[in-house]
């Protein structure tokens, strides 16, 4: 269980909830792979993201992204250093977004620096308060689940 899949996002901030939703969809579609890995979902982990990554040799982080560079519903597969270009749509308390937390953790912890982290990003349309995903993001969950599966299959 040294590979972890982490879905991040708030279910009450519209498309910000895409990360955990995509992870749940992947678990349903690919139970054989999902049962062999550690799977976590977190609404707003802040610095707790470092605990979720603790002990992992490889990780796939699934998160909503906000960008003008791609249409809503686009599924992106990114290396960690590409993540800073994308900002999470929902503000987190004390400004500890996933990108800053990962940068801090990797600066401090050699084992985290050695952990291979990949990101599956789902471009969101609407991050306003309220439950529910936009139609574009809902339609993208299948593709996101397939992207997670491809990312983890390479590492099993």
């Amino acid at each position: 269980m040294d590979i972890v899949v982490i879905g991040i996002g708030q279910s009450l901030r519209g498309d910000d909830g895409a990360g955990p939703e995509a992870v749940r969809r992947w678990q349903e579609k690919f139970p054989a792979t999902a049962s062999r890995l550690r799977v976590e979902t977190a609404e707003l982990p802040g610095l707790g993201l470092l605990d979720l990554l603790s002990g992992a040799r490889a990780a796939v982080i699934v998160d909503a992204v906000q960008t003008e560079a791609a249409a809503a519903g686009t599924v992106l597969r990114l290396a960690l250093d590409e993540a800073a270009a994308f900002a999470s749509g929902a503000n987190s308390a004390h400004g500890w977004g996933a990108a800053e937390t990962l940068a801090l953790g990797r600066a401090l912890d050699p084992s985290l620096a050695a952990c291979r982290i990949r990101l599956v990003g789902i471009v969101g349309a609407d991050f306003a308060t309220g439950a529910g995903l936009s139609p574009e993001v809902r339609a993208a969950l299948e593709a996101a689940a397939a992207a997670i599966e491809e990312e983890v299959k390479d590492r099993l």
């Binding site: 610095l47 707790g48 470092l50 605990d51 800053e100 940068a103 801090l104 600066a107 401090l108 912890d109």
Partner: peptide, 25 residues
Amino acid sequence: ESALELAAVAPEVVKDALRLKKIGN
């Protein structure tokens, strides 16, 4: 400017800070 910048010059301080905080959690 931030804890990240602090971590670059004083990593042990920030590491201890994260450990201190985690024990509370």
